[in-house]
Amino acid sequence: MDKAKKGWGAWLLIGIAVTYMGFLIVAPISALIVGAFEEGLLPVIKSLTTTAFRQALSLSIRIALLVVIIQTVLGTMVAWVIVRHNFLGKSLLNGIIDVPFAVSPVVVGYMLLLLFGRNGFLFPLIEKTGVQVAFAVPGMFLATLFVSLPFMIREMIPVIQNLDRQQELAASTLGANGWVIFWRVIFPQLRSGLIYGMTLTLARALGEFGAVLVIGGGVQGRTETTTLYIFRSLEERRLIEAYSASILLGSFSVIIVYLADALKRHQMTRNALGVIEDSFTAKLKIE
């Protein structure tokens, strides 16, 4: 009897969860897919092979990958410094990491315009170097870097906090130098966090719209990313092109997130089995 009651409550809970997710995620995505394939497969393929779309996708991917690399290296460093070192202004640094979450991307674009625009503070400096930042790809890159900043750092802080310091001490006692310790002891433990952080950063970078529109100006073929292309297609009533591009961009992100999740789970199982610790001791024995 008790069991039956529990079952009823559980079913209600499941029902709410499924309806909620279905309404918020499954329904709009289904509508998108139905819209894209309204006239069959051919228009979809056609719209995904246009020069305009390929240029936009290529720009999105280039910006996103470069942003991921930089966030991976510098983001991890920032997280490391925050966890392991004490210095004046540390709590301030820790606090401003989340600023990009709080600032609207459109405002981010305008802030960069205030810096690099024709009347911007840094414009005289920029002009001398001959590099165009506002209304060009470097500005869009900076904007994407800004909006995706917190993901890597916030992902890595707990990972670094959970590092087992005894392993480092043990390795040091056994004669390993700093580089060996980082590469063989610390890095394997960071890896799953890094992969997850990279995924989130990549997804955020690919999806950015407002900041890159304001700082980039949305010039077709030059500063038009995939999201800007989708927006333009909608405005020009080229719905199938907009839907197809959205599906492609969306599935790209979904696949990446899924892969990272799978990798992370795989790694966690290995950790639980002590595989890493074993291989570590095995390697040390060989040396």
Partner: peptide, 8 residues
């Protein structure tokens, strides 16, 4: 405004 801000 974009042109004034430096869109060439």
């Amino acid at each position: 405004r974009a042109v004034i801000d430096g869109f060439e």
